[in-house]
């Protein structure tokens, strides 16, 4: 059987189609804010939030909620807002607060899973929450819709506020001085990041989310010189790498999340070389 036939066969299964759709949507959204995150030194917040989402997921699992999002989403958004505040507060160092919250959430989450889990194979549960093992392949139609709607909202918000996000990312003080409500846009960015992280947990698991957000941005920053080109390139690159990653993992049975991240890394190496040649 040729590769094409093989793929055709897989795509007859709805779960494969769902995985592809959701994967592409998440890849698109997560790459949009990558540049802002990297440049505003917000990337550590993304990292911390993914641990918080893990903890919240564990709690949601233990309490037996039918739809985990109901708990995970608000908790992660709340933490995003708190972390942003603490980052602006000179007294508590921002990164120390992030470290505290993220390590705490990890520990509590793992403990709860161990204490209360009804599942027979806890380490497999933990592993799949951390690395996204198979959850992308077990999506229900409802989850696909939730993901699609949230992705559209995130992408629309980004497009609508693109110029303002640029202004605030490039020079927050100047933006404030000309009357732009920088706090509002910082908050918006934090909330969008929280939403993306919760969405992306399905795809790559909570440990690998930062990679999904940051790699495409870092790669395109190596080659392109305008904010617009970098943004467009990271979106395309992210979608491409994710699609390829999902295909490879379906065909060869590798874990979805780590395959995608591995391809993102490969792209980063290629782009770095290209950038070096160009210079």
């Amino acid at each position: 059987m040729s590769l094409m036939d093989n793929l055709k066969m897989y795509f007859q299964y709805p779960f494969v189609r769902y995985a592809m759709i959701v994967g592409i949507l998440i890849a698109l959204c997560s790459s949009l804010l990558g540049v802002t995150l990297v440049l505003k030194r917000f990337s550590f917040i993304g990292d911390g939030l993914s641990h918080v989402a893990f903890g919240a997921m564990a709690v949601a699992g233990v309490t037996g909620l039918s739809n985990e999002m109901i708990l995970v989403m608000p908790v992660t958004i709340l933490c995003a807002v708190l972390l942003l505040r603490s980052g602006q507060n000179a007294k508590i160092k921002g990164d120390a607060a992030v470290a505290m919250i993220s390590v705490g959430a990890l520990a509590v989450g793992y403990m709860l899973m161990n204490l209360f889990s009804t599942s027979s194979n806890i380490s497999a549960d933990v592993c799949s929450t951390l690395f996204g093992a198979t959850s992308i392949l077990t999506l229900t139609l409802t989850e696909v819709w939730v993901c699609a709607v949230l992705s559209v909202i995130v992408a629309a918000a980004f497009l609508f506020f693109y110029n303002k996000i640029f202004c605030v990312t490039f020079d927050e003080n100047f933006a404030r001085a000309t009357g732009i409500k920088a706090d509002v846009y910082n908050l918006l960015v934090a909330i969008i990041i929280a939403v993306i992280i919760v969405l992306a947990m399905n795809l790559v698991g909570s440990l690998l989310i930062s990679a999904l957000i940051i790699f495409p941005a870092l790669s395109s920053m190596r080659v392109y010189k305008s904010f617009r080109a970098v943004t467009i390139c990271s979106a395309c690159l992210s979608v491409f790498c994710t699609a390829v990653g999902i295909l490879i993992s379906i065909l060869s049975g590798t874990p979805v999340g780590s395959t995608i991240v591995a391809i993102d890394m490969a792209a980063f190496i290629i782009f770095s070389l290209a950038g070096a040649v160009r210079r």
Partner: peptide, 17 residues
């Protein structure tokens, strides 16, 4: 220092207010 933006994008952002 390492912000990817063109001169045009930056100057135009002055009109954002």
């Amino acid at each position: 220092k390492d912000f990817p933006a063109t001169v045009w994008e930056i100057v135009l952002s002055g009109c954002q207010g």
